[in-house]
Simulated assay, not measured.
Amino acid sequence: MWGWIFVFMALALLLYLYFLKRELRKLKHAVKELPTRSSYGSRLFIDFRSNALMDLVDELNQVIDKFEEKNRQAKQMEENVRLSITGLSHDLRTPLTSINGYVQLLNEITDETKRMHYLGIISNSIQRLMEMTDHFYDLARIETNQKEITLSSFSLSHLIEEIFLSFYEQFEDKKIRLQFPEKMNDRQIIADKLMLTRVIQNIVQNILRYAKSKAVISYKNEDNNLVFSVSNNIKKDSKVAVEKVFMRFYTEDTSRTNPESSGLGLYLSKKLVEKMNGKMNARLYDNWFIVEIHLPLNKVHT
């Protein structure tokens, strides 16, 4: 009787080893094919139920999940860079063409007044080129997670006032009136001051390009955030698509021939605000374009 039991156990063990070896071969083959099909939600499965083998497959599937996520992020980053290069190349062409044309005119004229006028246009075009390349550089660093962030506590209202008033002459030239709140909100926020300065400068540039005659700055407390709002009136024939203003390379001019805007300013600003644990949104109300930035308050100074 014991002999039969021994034979039965031996046969069972052989069958177990056979199916285990067969499953391992299938698993080995599936792992080899992963690089060619892992981007399609590939998973490893087994037919033979062994606790040790099932644990191994679970671990491998977790590795596959991480690999696919990294692969997806890499492809998205590659696509973002491709779109950025395509858009930037298109936008660089306008100021470069302008510079080239006016340089040729400078070589042909002797009128000093016209020469100074052309030099002013060239200077503005060069400034625009520098702004575009700065935007692209910041955008590339953000989307490759290379832009470092340094959070500190400071007064948002003081920074806003300082930046807006530094553009006083441009607002005067454009005949845009600024309206600050009668009572300043001096509460401290937590943010990266250099990043936030860049965001506010982008908002100012947007107002200078598209505002009709007035911009209103306001603040309000909301939960644990300080909300900074900028409203500017827009022209009646404006074609702002508010649902697209934070899209890469969006401009009000759908032909994308606007020499003053690359369409990166608000897109980049939103990215920077989100990196500082805040949020940024925009809406239209009657003939007013409204941008809101939510930034965390420093509770120690509240």
Results as ranks from 00 to 15, higher is better:
Met1Gly: 11
Gly3Arg: 09
Trp4Ala: 04
Ile5Val: 06
Val7Phe: 08
Val7Tyr: 09
Val7Leu: 11
Met9Ser: 13
Met9Leu: 15
Ala10Gln: 11
Leu13Phe: 11
Leu14Pro: 04
Leu14Cys: 07
Leu14Tyr: 12
Leu14Val: 12
Tyr16Cys: 07
Tyr18Gln: 08
Phe19Leu: 05
Arg25Lys: 13
Arg25Glu: 07
Leu27Trp: 05
Leu27Asp: 01
Leu34Met: 10
Thr36Leu: 08
Ser39Arg: 00
Arg43Asp: 05
Leu44Cys: 04
Ser50Lys: 05
Ser50Trp: 04
Asn51Pro: 06
Ala52Tyr: 09
Leu53Pro: 04
Asp55Tyr: 09
Glu59Lys: 13
Glu59His: 10
Gln62Leu: 12
Asp65Val: 10
Asp65Met: 12
Ala74Tyr: 12
Ala74Lys: 13
Glu78Val: 03
Arg82Ile: 07
Thr94Ile: 15
Pro95Asp: 08
Thr97Met: 11
Ile99Asp: 11
Ile99Pro: 05
Glu108Ile: 03
Asp111Gln: 14
Glu112Gln: 13
Thr113Ile: 09
Thr113Lys: 13
Thr113Tyr: 12
Lys114Cys: 08
Lys114Leu: 15
His117Tyr: 15
Ile121Val: 15
Ile122Cys: 08
Ser125Pro: 08
Thr133Lys: 14
His135Ala: 11
Phe136Gly: 03
Phe136Trp: 04
Asp138Trp: 06
Ala140Ile: 11
Arg141Leu: 15
Ile142Glu: 01
Glu143Asn: 03
Asn145Pro: 01
Asn145Ala: 10
Lys147Glu: 14
Ile149Leu: 04
Ser152Tyr: 03
Ser155Val: 00
Ser155Ala: 06
His158Leu: 08
Leu159Gly: 01
Glu161Ser: 09
Glu162Ile: 00
Ile163Gly: 09
Ser166Trp: 04
Glu169Ser: 13
Phe171Gln: 01
Phe171Met: 05
Lys174Ala: 10
Lys174Asp: 09
Ile176Asp: 09
Gln179Asp: 11
Pro181Cys: 06
Lys183Glu: 15
Ile189His: 00
Ile189Gln: 00
Leu194Met: 05
Thr197Arg: 07
Gln201Thr: 05
Gln201His: 14
Ile203Arg: 00
Asn206Glu: 10
Ile207Tyr: 02
Ser213Ala: 12
Val227Met: 02
Val227Ser: 02
Val230Lys: 02
Asn232Tyr: 07
Asn233Glu: 13
Val242Ser: 06
Glu243Lys: 03
Arg248Ala: 10
Tyr250Trp: 07
Asp253Arg: 14
Thr254Asn: 14
Ser255Thr: 14
Ser255Lys: 13
Ser255Leu: 11
Glu260Asp: 08
Leu264Ile: 05
Gly265Arg: 00
Gly265Asp: 02
Ser269Arg: 01
Leu272Lys: 03
Glu274His: 01
Lys275Ser: 08
Leu284Gln: 09
Asn298Met: 01
Asn298His: 10
His301Tyr: 14
